Simulated assay, not measured.
Amino acid sequence: MAKNRRGRGKIEPKPIGGAMATILDGRYQLVKPLGVGGFGRTFLARDTRRPGAPTCVVKQLKPASDDPGFIREARRLFNTEAETLEKLGSHDRIPQLLAYFEEKDHFFLVQEFIEGQSLDRELQSDGAATHVQGHEEAPTTLTAATPAPKKATEAQAVAILKDVLEILEFVHGEGVIHRDIKPENLIRRQSDGRLVLIDFGAVKALGEAPPPGEGSGESRYTVTIGTPGYMPTEQCAGRPNYTSDLYALGMVVIRALTGCEPTELPHDPDNGELVWRDRVKVSSGLAMVLSRMVRSQYAQRYQSAKDAMQALNAFVVPVEAAPTPTVTSAAPP
């Protein structure tokens, strides 16, 4: 069993309406629901077979079709994905896969609990929130007006880039494309302030029903996974590659620097490139690195996370990063 090296905090979650009776695989007692998505549900749970019944996260992946062929393909994808997550979980900043199993045509992943806050929440100004994979506790106090978004400093932006590029170099080295890098899937771990990458996108394919009228075979179950604004054109077309993750990370950092959602930023009508440099003042080195990461043609981007990291180290002068919570408010447009 892995040691407590990732900041697994001991928490005492309060069950909703008393203890939940459901125990999965004879050991994982569901404590409370955390979130519901198109691909299934997420629960906070306890592993009753380990000393102290430590907290973990259980993701239920329910195939969207009862078609026997789809179930067979879902099972194959699930087993392949679980093996991939098992391999990736050896990295300190990817949640460790603790178990995976099937019960009554439902598929379950059990993952390490990460206590912290999403980058998306960091870039908002409506109060702190605790994040669990796939769920955020909303602040109890609501404001009447929509608060202005926050902007990261250049030092903070560089720190985000370096943190995530380190993870992507490992992930891509294992032959995996994340496909859904966005602020919500980057968690600032409470124990050490490092970013953790969560929610690898391929498992979401199990929640997508096969298109009607498609022919048989594996391609019948192919789905496009990602988030508008963070997906480059080749990923929208169902052909992601390693540079697609670099594009998404570039958009994450541009979002952090400008305070603008990716879908709010225009594109040059002549060449299709993203127009963002007029929204924030940054060094020419950082601007060059980010602009190359988000080029519309993937052949013109950095071809690996290692290449992007080398460029960042070569062209961006190191500056001392401000503390994570210190972020400037952007003026409303």
Rank of each mutant, 00 (worst) to 15 (best):
D245H: 10
L257A: 13
A330E: 06
L44P: 03
F170T: 09
G69Q: 10
G226T: 06
V319C: 00
G207D: 04
H172P: 09
D180C: 11
F101S: 10
K59Q: 10
E234W: 12
C260A: 13
V327A: 02
V282A: 05
V110I: 03
A202N: 12
T324I: 14
S90Q: 11
L265I: 05
Q96H: 12
G238P: 09
L88T: 01
L206P: 09
H131D: 08
A330Y: 06
L142K: 06
V132I: 11
K162Q: 08
G215Q: 05
P63K: 10
E208F: 12
K150Q: 09
T324A: 12
K151C: 14
N185C: 13
G207P: 06
F170G: 08
S191T: 13
W276K: 07
G173S: 03
Y298D: 07
G116A: 05
R27P: 03
S291T: 12
G52T: 08
G250F: 04
G18L: 12
S284K: 15
P332C: 00
A330W: 09
E214T: 11
V223E: 05
G229F: 04
H178E: 01
M251A: 12
K87F: 01
V223H: 07
G89I: 10
A129C: 06
V196W: 01
A128R: 10
D105T: 13
R188V: 13
V132S: 09
A209V: 03
G26P: 11
L142V: 05
P232G: 09
A45I: 02
F43Q: 03
A205S: 11
L85M: 11
E214A: 15
M231Q: 11
Q60V: 11
K59W: 04
G238V: 00
A99Y: 03
E154Y: 07
R301K: 14
Y221C: 06
A256D: 07
R49M: 08
A322D: 14
L168R: 04
V317S: 14
A248V: 02
D245C: 09
L161P: 15
E214R: 14
Q235S: 01
A299G: 11
A311C: 09
T80D: 15
T328A: 08
A145C: 08
R49G: 13
E86C: 08
T141W: 08
I16N: 00
Q300G: 02
L97Q: 03
V280A: 11
S284N: 10
V280P: 02
E218D: 12
Y28Q: 04
V31M: 11
V327L: 15
K204E: 15
L44D: 03
G193K: 05
A148I: 01
Q60L: 13
V319W: 00
H172M: 03
L44G: 13
Q310F: 02
I11Y: 09
L142H: 11
A248H: 05
A209S: 15
L286C: 00
E214I: 13
R50W: 00
R301C: 05
R5C: 14
V280K: 10
C260M: 10
K281Q: 14
A129Y: 00
L109R: 02
I71K: 06
K306G: 13
